[in-house]
Design a protein around this nucleic acid. Structure first.
Lengths: 127, 127
DNA sequence: AGCCATAGACTACACATGTAATCAAAAAAA
DNA sequence: TTTTTTTGATTACATGTGTAGTCTATGGCT
């Protein structure tokens, strides 16, 4: 298959706002990032360019500006990253990771309910 | 608090075998890594040195050799990494991450049981 | 006592990354 | 039409990272 493009931390932030809503011009991306990050516009444009070069973003010209959009789905990316994260740090076992997370962070009742729902779904499909 | 040292991927592999068993000489580390990685001994020694400089490893001299050992606990590291991973990719919500993982990987009956146990424990502490 | 193997220290070097500044072309303004 | 602005393209540059090679001192062998 196509090899997973390495997306750096800074690049991820840019991709993330494009996942939220796209296509978008560089100025829109810059504006949205302004809330969370304190990046110079030139920095954001560099990151956009690098993501295009990596094949993570596509764009189409609209007059002089580009309209950028993601070429990979957020779900696909997060699934792959999660799998590799869990296998690296937890030998591929999900429960210890959840345990460590629970131990470090407060789990809400809703978190618990969602986990229960996942388990229930699994049990309905496997028995 | 002390700021989290950035541990690169390659460095992590070295740290990982030291977490498994320590203290260990560089040669022991090199030998253990030989199974999984195809790294030159010099490479491993460079990584050991960098980890020492970053304050991740300590050592004590044994004649001419060093006995290396981790200065941070695996649990502490994995918890922090998990928290930051979940907050970056899943807005801090653990259930969607587990859902994505389950969707990508086969969950075993044991995984499910472990998750159930975690939930049960949470419910005993919170009600 | 002298030489050699070896351990860690120091150096190397290309590519990635964070963080921009400058350049060139075209659109917008004057 | 000339000037200014703005956009993407190109260049910059320090630091991190992967992946070693060379230097130097010392413990061990002869």
């Amino acid at each position: 298959m196509s090899d997973k493009p390495e997306i750096s931390n800074a690049e991820f932030e840019v991709l993330d706002v494009l996942w939220d809503d796209h296509p978008a011009t560089s100025n829109e991306v810059i504006a949205r990032l302004n809330d969370k990050k304190d990046w110079h516009e030139k920095t954001v444009k560099t990151l956009l360019g690098r993501l295009v070069k990596k094949g993570v973003l596509g764009f189409e010209k609209q007059q002089r500006q580009y309209l950028y959009y993601p070429l990979i789905a957020r779900e696909d990316y997060t699934k792959k990253e999660t799998t590799s994260f869990v296998s690296r740090l937890f030998k591929g076992k999900i429960a210890p990771m959840v345990a460590g997370f629970a131990n470090q962070n407060a789990l809400s009742k809703q978190d618990i309910n969602e986990l229960k729902a996942l388990i229930k779904e699994w049990e309905e499909n496997n028995d």
